[in-house]
């Protein structure tokens, strides 16, 4: 499906709520779901998030009016709760596609499970918050933070980069957003059309440091040399060691040494 041909069926971003300041676009989206029935594909974007969220207990730092910070409301009820890693792979691919589209010739990769890296630096992060009713994903909020025009970051943020740092120019945020919506729509439709193997194989091909020998730390801080050879059905990383033995690692059980 060509990216310029899907505009008519555009689903994500048709309903776009632009906010100046908000605690967190994900929180705003979750509140909307709790109180009303927002249309699937609704996007909430903000110029500034004063409590931008990352993982549990972590923050997402973003200077006002410099970056893309938005949340997309989806209803992937066609997907079973246990298959949610496919949703993660699809949205990771979408953000990857977006970054890759504007930073052609750069080495854009997906750092497992869902960060976007250019070379060895982080340019975008994703925060997925689902609501599960038994085996069904009733709703999903996809938070996306992409560093665009910010060039100075706090010291405690490891390895950040941005469009402006790489290209040495200022980008037009309003012009960029529709492209993100297009890529999200494309990958979401791929997921909805059950092209799961396509999604998985593209995700694996684009994984940061896949198939090469690298150093990792396990959850106890011990070093291990291994090669990423895939992900299992629930998204755990499969890493082979020098003896040919494969280990399966969940999030927090292994991390890249960058």
């Amino acid at each position: 499906m060509a990216i310029d041909r899907i505009d008519k069926s555009l689903l994500i971003g048709n309903n776009h709520i632009r906010l100046k300041n908000v605690n967190s676009t994900n929180k705003y989206a979750l509140d909307m779901i709790a109180k009303s029935k927002p249309i699937e594909g609704t996007v909430i974007s903000a110029s500034f998030q004063y409590e931008g969220r990352g993982q549990i207990g972590r923050f997402w730092e973003s200077e006002a009016e410099k970056n893309i910070t938005c949340s997309t409301i989806l209803e992937p009820s066609f997907l079973e709760s246990g298959d949610q890693f496919y949703l993660n792979m699809a949205v990771s691919l979408a953000v990857h596609d977006f970054v890759d589209h504007f930073l052609k010739d750069e080495n854009v990769k997906i750092k497992w499970p869902n960060d976007i890296y250019v070379d060895d630096k982080k340019i975008a992060g994703i925060l997925v918050q689902n609501s599960l009713v038994g085996k069904t994903i009733s709703s999903s909020v996809i938070g996306t933070g992409i560093n665009i025009n910010q060039v100075n970051f706090s010291k405690h943020i490891r390895n950040p980069t941005s469009f402006a740092m790489i290209r040495d120019e200022v980008f037009d945020l309003d012009g960029l957003l529709p492209w993100l919506f297009r890529f999200l729509t494309k990958r979401y439709l791929q997921l909805k059309n059950k092209q799961l193997e396509v999604i998985k194989s593209e995700y694996l091909d684009l994984l940061y440091r896949v198939g090469t020998w690298n150093l990792f730390h396990d959850e106890h801080g011990l070093s291990l040399e291994g090669k990423i050879i895939g992900v299992d059905e629930i998204g755990r990383l499969i890493v082979e060691d020098r003896d040919g033995i494969c280990g399966v690692y969940g999030f927090r059980e292994i991390r890249y040494v960058v």
Binding site: Q84, P113, V128, S131, L132, S138, G250, F251
Partner: peptide, 15 residues
């Protein structure tokens, strides 16, 4: 509650 799986956060709704 929340059940986190591979950095995806899942609010579990009671049935």
């Amino acid at each position: 509650c929340i059940v986190e799986a591979m950095k995806l956060f899942n609010e579990i709704e009671s049935e």
